Computed example of a mutant assay.
Amino acid sequence: MPRVVFLLIPQVHLLDVAGPAQVFSTADDLGHPHTLTYVAEDDEVATVQGLTLRAETSWPSLTPDDLVIVPGWRGPTRPASQQALRHLREHHASGGTVASVCAGADALGRAGLLDGRRCTTHHAVQDELARLYPRAVVVKDRLYIEDDRIVTSAGVASGTDMALHLITTRHGPYAAGQVARAMLVHTHRDGTAEQISPLLRWRSHVDDTVHRIQDLIEVRFTERLPLSLLAEAAGCSERTVTRLFSQATGLTPLAYQTALRLERAEHLLGRGATVETAARAVGFVDARMLRRLRARTAPSAGR
């Protein structure tokens, strides 16, 4: 069972912890198990909002499948300890993912994990992050960014977006959609986050028929899905499927399926897969289609 470890710093922002924690807890309820652990220097941690949190004072053993999240805090306060920074470095070096919310990016910077990597943080402290860590590539006005298993987010509510992104990459877009709907959160923010999931971008509508079609595509996006199959699942004609889907999302069902395949392929490539392996894993016949799609989207992705 993957473990999600929250490193709590005194004067931590409650929502920076609670948002991502709720995402992973809800995922657990829906059949995607996670163990949530909270660690700190002391067993009680004061939040900005006045609620005291309980935490473990010793770190658990971690595997590459585990995730460490550093929520943001209000300064000035004592920085993360050298021991905590060492844990962050070692976890990433072993193949694990390290994430931050808001000012939590400072801990990643102190650990040297932002050097040479794209990152973001709350707009109020973006310039300060760039000044403190000149080797980091601070990208402004983004909800979240992932670069080589380092995930940073803008803060407060964007921590939830980041956590949904991590659910998508680990369990697929259908799982993320289940979590978002269970939490009653908006599945569409805006287009400023480069890593925002296609599911989160095109799930903001209220058409139940199209949601059912998307559910099917998301579960079976690696398969060939003829329009007749989608129409049968939706209980309407093929023409109606195309019309309703286009009205709700601006896409054809095939274009939506292709976007899901491309997102999953990019994740596999980021984990070291070859283009050929990634292409076949997501349902393309060979690597040529994946190469063409990546080349087509490269300018908008800033590649």
Rank of each mutant, 00 (worst) to 15 (best):
T52D: 08
L53W: 01
L53D: 03
L53F: 13
R54K: 13
A55D: 13
E56F: 04
E56K: 10
E56M: 14
P60T: 13
S61R: 15
L62M: 04
P64E: 04
D65C: 09
D65T: 14
D66H: 15
L67Y: 06
I69H: 06
I69F: 00
I69E: 03
I69N: 04
P71N: 14
G72L: 11
G72R: 08
G72E: 00
W73M: 15
P76S: 07
T77V: 15
P79R: 06
P79T: 00
P79K: 02
A80R: 07
S81I: 05
S81Y: 05
Q83H: 15
A84E: 12
A84D: 12
L85W: 02
L85M: 12
L88W: 00
L88E: 10
L88D: 12
E90S: 12
E90D: 14
H91M: 09
H92Y: 01
H92K: 05
H92E: 01
A93I: 04
G95F: 07
G95K: 14
G96P: 09
T97C: 11
T97P: 10
T97M: 09
A99T: 04
V101M: 07
C102L: 03
A103M: 11
A103D: 10
G104I: 08
A105P: 02
A105M: 12
D106T: 13
L108V: 11
L108Y: 03
L108W: 02
G109M: 00
R110N: 10
R110T: 03
R110E: 13
A111F: 08
G112M: 00
G112Q: 00
G112F: 02
L113P: 11
L114W: 02
D115E: 15
G116C: 00
G116P: 02
R118V: 02
R118Y: 10
T121H: 03
H122W: 06
H122Y: 08
A124H: 09
A124L: 10
A124D: 12
A124V: 12
V125W: 03
Q126D: 15
D127K: 12
D127I: 03
E128A: 14
E128L: 11
L129H: 11
Y133I: 05
Y133Q: 05
P134G: 08
P134E: 08
A136F: 01
V137K: 07
V137S: 13
V138P: 04
V138N: 03
V138W: 08
D141I: 04
R142E: 13
R142P: 06
L143Q: 15
I145N: 05
I145R: 01
E146T: 08
E146S: 14
E146L: 15
D147M: 09
D148K: 13
R149P: 06
I150K: 09
T152D: 03
S153V: 01
S153M: 02
A154P: 04
A154K: 04
G155P: 10
G155A: 06
G155N: 02
V156R: 00
A157Q: 07
A157H: 03
G159F: 01
G159T: 04
T160C: 14
T160F: 12
T160Y: 10
D161G: 06
D161R: 05
A163Y: 02
A163K: 04
L164W: 07
L164N: 12
L164S: 09
H165P: 06
